[in-house]
Design a protein around this nucleic acid. Structure first.
Length: 270
DNA sequence: CACGATACCTGTAAGC
DNA sequence: TGCTTACAGGTATCGT
């Protein structure tokens, strides 16, 4: 489910419910996700007022008025449910606002995480300090990629998934961006021309921005009537389309890289 | 250090 | 129907 656009959509949806509200109740239903829930999480959040929400890479941030921020990562299967019809299986963290609205962090595989940090120390949090530039920010340039890829022999697809190179890309949007930029996913990163990187950067931005827009329109202001967040119609050009015709007519191919599926067109991508 | 493999955990879909 | 297998949008860690 969650790459950068889905996290962004989720954060915007959560903001409609949480922004400016007091957190009246916090319930933790198991000790951990990928890591233990932070000690004191319930106490820190209960009674606090949410001052704002934001996103960094694939992390969602909920800022409260006590100088702290709850940082969540959705892993592979995480999602927030708004006003769910009862607390269900895998609703590991439940938050209720002063207005009585309920938010449930649901994560079947529990690859996600929740952390509690001082807001003014977010930048030096090791997980954030290690991240590369935001793909939608000014830091992602062809020159940045060229520098990051210099001398590297790993496949470009794999390096684009490395959050230290660019922060927020995942398997779907890397496949899509490489296809749109006509770059073969197995090309050694250090050997991709600056011209090709010049095509790639705007395509990375475009796939992400289009996905965020689709999320907004599909979800109607980022929240579906059933309370689900982050899901929207997918119209990928290659992802999940093995054997189907690429725009050029040739079948989309599927290979494994780093143990994960890569979809591409061997005719369009060189 | 760069890089590939593996582990984490559960659900779902496909194959037999 | 039931059982087994492959695979899933992410990341940390381990060995070479």
């Amino acid at each position: 489910m969650p790459e950068l656009p889905e996290v962004e959509t989720t954060v915007r949806g959560l903001a409609t419910v949480l922004e400016g509200q007091v957190i009246a109740r916090v319930q933790v239903n198991r000790p951990d996700l990928r890591r233990p829930f932070p000690p004191g999480l319930v106490q820190a959040l209960t009674g606090a007022r949410v001052t704002g929400l934001s996103r960094r890479a694939k992390y969602g941030l909920i800022h409260v008025d006590r100088g702290q921020t709850m940082v969540f990562h959705l892993g592979m299967s995480g999602r927030w449910r708004i006003d769910p019809d009862g607390i269900g299986k895998h609703d590991h963290l439940v938050i209720e606002t002063g207005k009585g609205q309920v938010l449930a962090l649901n994560d079947a595989r529990r690859f996600g995480s929740v952390d509690l940090l001082d807001t003014d120390a977010l930048d030096v949090w090791p997980q954030f300090a290690a991240l590369g530039p935001e793909p939608l920010g000014p830091g992602l340039t062809p020159a940045h990629l060229a520098a990051a890829f210099e001398g590297r022999f790993a496949a470009i697809k794999l390096l684009l998934l490395d959050q230290r190179v660019v922060a927020g890309l995942g398997n779907i949007y890397v496949c899509e961006a490489l296809h749109r930029a006509a770059i073969h996913p197995e090309r050694k990163a250090g050997k991709v021309s600056l011209a090709a990187l010049g095509r790639l950067v705007p395509e990375v931005r475009a796939v992400l921005e289009e996905a965020i827009l689709a999320g907004g329109s599909t979800l109607r202001d980022y929240v579906r009537p059933d309370g689900e967040l982050g899901y929207f119609a997918k119209d990928w050009r290659v992802y999940g389309r093995e054997g189907e015709a690429c725009g050029c007519g040739r079948p989309v191919e599927r290979i494994a890289q780093g143990g994960r599926s890569t979809f591409f067109c061997g005719h369009c991508q060189k």
